[in-house]
């Protein structure tokens, strides 16, 4: 697993938890759910205090206090400025990232299964992954204009690369011993793929989707700034250029909340799909 141990405090109290879970539990100290929540709340309080202090120290008009940001956010929501922008951004984000997940997993898995396909296209995929996707924006605008399609494509191009590369790596990392076992039971290619290769690659798929979702959100804002200005990116441009820092920061907070929400949702999916690791 690239980023996060799957066995966490949630395994506490299970009978035959593996050693890693036992270690986490011991090292966690305040590692139960309530303890984590309290620690996180405390850290949030610290951030707010530092933020307030910085806002007081900064020259007027360059920064805004958490209270001012909350007030501005509330006003924007109440006056109906926030909801349409949020909806526009989420549409671009979810469409682009969603297509990237489907296409990326399929293409990455296909590359992992077919040596010929992998040998043929992996150099192009890697080259594309290393090229700053912003470079394609003028081309995309020429081809698709400034509307929704162009924005979705920009998000897609950013999000799809880590999904492809991780799915490819995950399928290639399939356990050869388990594959041989499956073949020895008479399983054909499809059955080996569905029961052995793909389930084993799930941690890779999720790691790729997690990175892709983050890049997708970044590219959503990039797309909204570079094409027809719209959505949350549009609000950032609007308030940023007029030094309305409270509103500007309120939009930033909304973006952070979207990022946190997506990350948490993926964590729950991962926990559900990988519950077999918890020795239940």
């Amino acid at each position: 697993m690239q980023d996060r141990p799957v066995a966490t405090a949630h395994t506490a109290g299970r009978p035959a938890a593996p050693a890693s879970a036992a270690l986490n539990r011991r090292a966690g100290g305040l590692g139960d759910g309530l303890g984590t929540a309290l620690l996180r709340l405390g850290f949030l309080g610290l951030i707010l205090i530092v933020w307030t202090a910085l806002a007081r120290a900064a020259p007027p008009g360059l920064f805004a206090s958490p209270l001012a940001v909350a007030r501005a956010g509330w006003m924007m929501a109440a006056e109906g400025r926030l909801a349409p922008a949020l909806a526009a951004s989420l549409t671009v984000y979810l469409a682009g990232t969603g297509i990237a997940v489907v296409v990326g997993c399929a293409l990455g898995a296909a590359m992992g299964m077919s040596r010929t396909l992998a040998r043929t296209i992996d150099i192009y995929v890697l080259a594309l992954a290393a090229t700053p996707r912003v470079a394609f924006i003028p081309l995309i605008i020429v081809a698709l204009g400034l509307g929704l399609q162009a924005k979705v494509l920009i998000v897609f191009l950013g999000a799809v690369m880590p999904v492809i590369l991780n799915a490819y790596a995950g399928v290639r990392a399939a356990d050869a011993e388990l594959v041989e076992m499956a073949i020895a039971t008479g399983a054909g290619r499809g059955r080996v793929l569905a029961h052995v290769v793909l389930p084993g690659a799930v941690p890779y798929f999720i790691a790729g989707i997690r990175i892709g979702a983050t890049i997708g959100l970044i590219n959503t804002i990039v797309a909204e700034l570079y094409t027809a200005i719209s959505g949350l990116g549009g609000l950032l441009a609007l308030y940023g250029s007029r030094f309305r820092m409270a509103e500007y920061l309120a939009v930033v907070v909304v973006l952070a909340l979207i990022g946190a929400g997506v990350t948490e949702a993926l964590r729950l999916v991962e926990k559900r799909l990988l519950r077999w690791r918890e020795a239940g």
Partner: peptide
């Protein structure tokens, strides 16, 4: 012999599918 027909293998490393 054809895999899965008439003979079944048992391996030293068990080879259970951990997600099942």
């Amino acid at each position: 012999p054809r895999p899965g027909e008439g003979a079944a293998m048992v391996f030293q490393s068990y080879r259970l599918l951990p997600w099942k």
